[in-house]
Design a protein around this nucleic acid. Sequence first.
DNA 1: GTCTATAGTGGGATAGAC
DNA 2: GTCTATCCCACTATAGAC
Lengths: 189, 189
Amino acid sequence: MHDPLTARARDIVAAARAVLEREGPDALTMRRVADELGIRAPSLYKHLPGKEALETAIIADGFAEAAAAFEEAVDGAADPLSAFVAAYRAFAQAHPHVYRLMTGGPLRREDLPPGLEARTAGPLLRAVGSPERARAAWAFVHGMTILELDGRFPADGTTDPAWRDGIAAFRAVRPTGASRTSGARTARR
Amino acid sequence: MHDPLTARARDIVAAARAVLEREGPDALTMRRVADELGIRAPSLYKHLPGKEALETAIIADGFAEAAAAFEEAVDGAADPLSAFVAAYRAFAQAHPHVYRLMTGGPLRREDLPPGLEARTAGPLLRAVGSPERARAAWAFVHGMTILELDGRFPADGTTDPAWRDGIAAFRAVRPTGASRTSGARTARR
DNA sequence: GTCTATAGTGGGATAGAC
DNA sequence: GTCTATCCCACTATAGAC
């Protein structure tokens, strides 16, 4: 179940995130987080049940930030899909370690604030029109992001052309098949 | 640099892969692999320099297997992209832990047999026609695969519609814009 | 709320004998 | 080629004093 955090717990989460962003996932240990606050590791357990809760709290903060960024980018944009992709890339590049934590592995949904995941997914859903297309588009965007972060594309230049090709692909298949005149929001296929 | 393995080293890699496939990444320890062979962990170091080399060898085997499967699926297929995707999904679902090891994180290319990565990438490249489109399509396919393996899509049914939408998207944007008559292999955009 | 002290677990890796 | 014996590391977590 999801529990709101105390003020001191929020301090700890902030310190943990700072450690993660600055030094990467291997540095995210209870000792290191305690050091960051000038206390001892065992003291952390008075405020948070354990390391998992700490990670989940960082993930929840990440989702909230990402959701806000996506909403601002997509809302009223002339090209919502491109706007979403730009915001998504920007978030991942600004917070690569947080992004990996958010997307790498299963998600403990029961410990996240209710509705947060759906809120984060909303902008892309609105940009592409159907849940199925949103999943496919998210897979593309996440795939590009994580493969790029991991250096899996041969380093022969920029990945911008691949991003462009993928965006073009998902824009080309509008629900009705028309190129850009269709505006039906709730159409499925 | 890449070094061929001795016969005994190959036995060790096979045992390590068996442990990984059966019990997952946390079980892939030097002690556990040694148990599998009925020897002690220190003995492994007479044949392999360390755990990293073991993992890289499993990855190399995975690439070789995947490359063979992709080649067979795509070669001469009426719909190369769908054939590739089916083979990719089948490999990942048959060997999820190996797939994660192969794709999760940076790749030590200098320890892989030369040309293996390019060979594995070949079938998709031939299916979509350009390196840029191949990267975008790989990102989609990997994204769907890893998000599905991690249970990141809400469990409201099958992911087949998302797969279908993504394949349709990448097929829709042929270099010339025609639906399926174009056969130009080297066209860029 | 924080501390000291410690338990308990697991891992990778090495030296040197057989 | 394999063994025993260790080393060293790191981590989570708890108990109980202050």
